[in-house]
Amino acid sequence: MNRLSWFNVVSLTLGFAFLYIPMLILILYSFNESKLVTVWAGFSTKWYGELLQNEAFLNAAWVTLKVAVFSSTLATVLGTIAAYVMIRSGKFFGRTLFSGMIYAPLVMPEVITGLSLLLLFIGIGLDRGVLTIVLAHTTFSMCYVSVVVSSRLVTFDQSLEEAALDLGCSQAEAFRLVTLPIIAPAVISGWLLAFTLSLDDLVIASFTSGPSATTLPIKIFSAVRLGVSPEINALSTIMIAIVTVGVITASLVSKQQAVRQKKEEQAAERAA
């Protein structure tokens, strides 16, 4: 399947134009001098300056970052344990329910997850704030982590773990010295996924946050409801830039690792 027809070329070009032009326009207008986002009035970086002085946005960004770091770390620990249990523990009481609870949040509409968690927090009398958002984000993102990690655990050669046990490792040591290094790339991508999901979430955070904790998406949403604003364009541009650098770096690193692994394997083969 290696012949590109004119049809393929056209659909790829149009497809990627459709995916990227809206974002390019958004970025372009963040450098617009005019307050009216639709009229081009010359190049300017003043909206970036105003953004840096907008304390409400900076506070919200700080809250969002805190929530994302805590919830994604917690979600990675819980999600990795959940994946390990699902793949390695065989049968246990309530296994079907457990696997259902891991997969269901992935397809649950956000409005329902948000509503149900809010009703729980009110029911047990927990004040809404950073803690409740962290709990909510951890719950849905641990399921994503668990799916990513378990797909790696399935293809993992279990005899390596058994060899470590035979050579005198305890179960915990075998996990730490053999299993964890091998599944590490999946654990890291799970963490990154959880982190991005948390940064991005508007609906669940809106339900579970209180007046004391406003996240960036909540702030952006309420600003955007009133219409387009160049400050939001500037903020979006910064966020797009961070993500782009992150994704490109991650793909370069994983490519390098793949090359190194291949080299090592070849060297090992030659040695043998």
Binding site: P22, I25, L26, Y29, D200, I220, F221, V228, S236, G246
Partner: peptide, 14 residues
């Protein structure tokens, strides 16, 4: 990986 909210917002200006 880019914010969902931002991608929707981009269309408001267009």
């Amino acid at each position: 990986w880019t914010s969902f909210l931002i991608r929707v917002y981009a269309w408001m200006g267009i």
